[in-house]
Measured scan of single mutants.
Amino acid sequence: KTVHVDGVEYRFNNPEEADKFVKRLVKEKNGNVEVRGDTYHVE
């Protein structure tokens, strides 16, 4: 899984860790998540 945040790319081998990371980011930023294939885009 890959997570894109503000143009920075984070790669996770463990999908659960990627999910936790995304949830935390969305809370912090009050942002939205767009999923494209295996990539999460957080804005």
Rank of each mutant, 00 (worst) to 15 (best):
K1M: 14
K1R: 12
K1L: 14
K1S: 12
K1V: 15
K1A: 13
K1W: 15
K1H: 13
T2A: 04
T2F: 09
T2K: 04
T2M: 05
T2H: 04
T2C: 15
V3Q: 01
V3T: 00
V3Y: 05
V3W: 04
V3M: 02
V3I: 11
V3R: 01
H4M: 14
H4P: 01
H4G: 02
H4N: 12
H4W: 15
H4D: 02
H4A: 05
H4R: 12
H4S: 11
V5I: 09
V5S: 01
V5H: 06
V5M: 03
V5F: 11
V5D: 01
V5T: 02
V5C: 13
V5Q: 00
D6N: 14
D6V: 01
D6A: 04
D6M: 05
G7P: 01
G7E: 01
G7W: 00
G7R: 00
G7T: 01
G7I: 00
V8H: 05
V8K: 10
V8D: 01
V8Q: 04
V8S: 03
V8L: 05
V8T: 05
V8N: 03
V8P: 00
E9H: 03
E9C: 15
E9A: 09
E9M: 11
E9P: 04
Y10K: 00
Y10L: 02
Y10D: 00
Y10C: 04
Y10S: 00
Y10A: 00
R11H: 12
R11W: 11
R11S: 06
R11E: 02
R11F: 12
R11P: 00
F12M: 00
F12W: 01
F12A: 02
F12Y: 00
F12T: 00
N13Y: 03
N13S: 13
N13D: 13
N13G: 05
N13C: 15
N13E: 13
N14G: 03
N14H: 03
N14Q: 03
N14L: 04
N14P: 00
N14S: 14
P15W: 12
P15R: 09
P15Y: 09
P15V: 09
P15L: 09
P15F: 09
P15Q: 13
E16S: 04
E16K: 04
E16A: 07
E16Y: 06
E16I: 05
E17G: 00
E17L: 02
E17V: 01
E17R: 00
E17K: 00
E17W: 02
A18T: 01
A18C: 13
A18V: 03
A18M: 06
D19H: 09
D19E: 13
D19Y: 14
D19C: 15
D19F: 13
K20I: 12
K20E: 15
K20V: 10
K20G: 07
K20N: 14
K20P: 03
K20T: 11
K20F: 09
K20A: 15
K20Y: 11
K20C: 15
F21Q: 01
F21A: 01
F21M: 01
F21K: 00
F21G: 02
F21H: 01
F21E: 01
V22C: 14
V22S: 02
V22A: 05
V22H: 04
V22Y: 09
V22G: 03
K23H: 06
K23T: 08
K23S: 12
K23Q: 13
K23R: 11
K23Y: 02
K23P: 02
K23N: 09
R24C: 15
R24Y: 12
R24S: 11
R24T: 09
R24N: 09
R24P: 01
L25C: 05
L25H: 03
L25Q: 03
L25F: 07
V26P: 02
V26T: 07
V26K: 07
V26D: 04
V26W: 12
V26R: 10
V26Y: 12
K27R: 12
K27D: 11
K27P: 02
K27Y: 11
K27V: 06
K27S: 11
K27T: 09
K27W: 10
K27M: 12
K27N: 08
E28I: 09
E28P: 04
E28D: 09
E28F: 11
E28Q: 09
K29S: 13
K29M: 14
K29D: 06
K29R: 13
K29Y: 15
K29N: 12
K29E: 06
K29I: 11
N30A: 07
N30Y: 11
N30K: 08
N30W: 11
N30V: 06
N30C: 15
N30M: 10
G31N: 08
G31H: 11
G31E: 08
G31R: 07
N32A: 09
N32S: 12
N32K: 14
N32F: 13
N32E: 06
N32Q: 11
V33K: 04
V33F: 10
V33R: 03
V33D: 04
V33A: 05
V33I: 08
V33N: 05
E34N: 10
E34T: 14
E34G: 05
E34V: 14
V35Q: 06
V35A: 07
V35C: 14
V35P: 04
V35M: 09
V35K: 09
R36D: 10
R36W: 08
R36F: 10
R36N: 08
R36V: 11
R36P: 07
G37W: 14
G37V: 13
G37Q: 07
G37N: 07
D38A: 05
D38V: 06
D38P: 05
D38G: 08
D38L: 06
D38W: 04
D38H: 05
T39P: 06
T39Q: 10
T39G: 11
T39M: 08
T39H: 12
T39K: 06
Y40I: 14
Y40F: 11
Y40C: 07
Y40Q: 08
Y40R: 03
H41N: 09
H41S: 09
H41Y: 15
H41M: 12
H41T: 09
V42I: 12
V42M: 08
V42Y: 07
V42W: 09
V42A: 08
V42E: 07
V42S: 06
V42L: 07
E43P: 08
E43T: 15
E43N: 13
E43D: 10
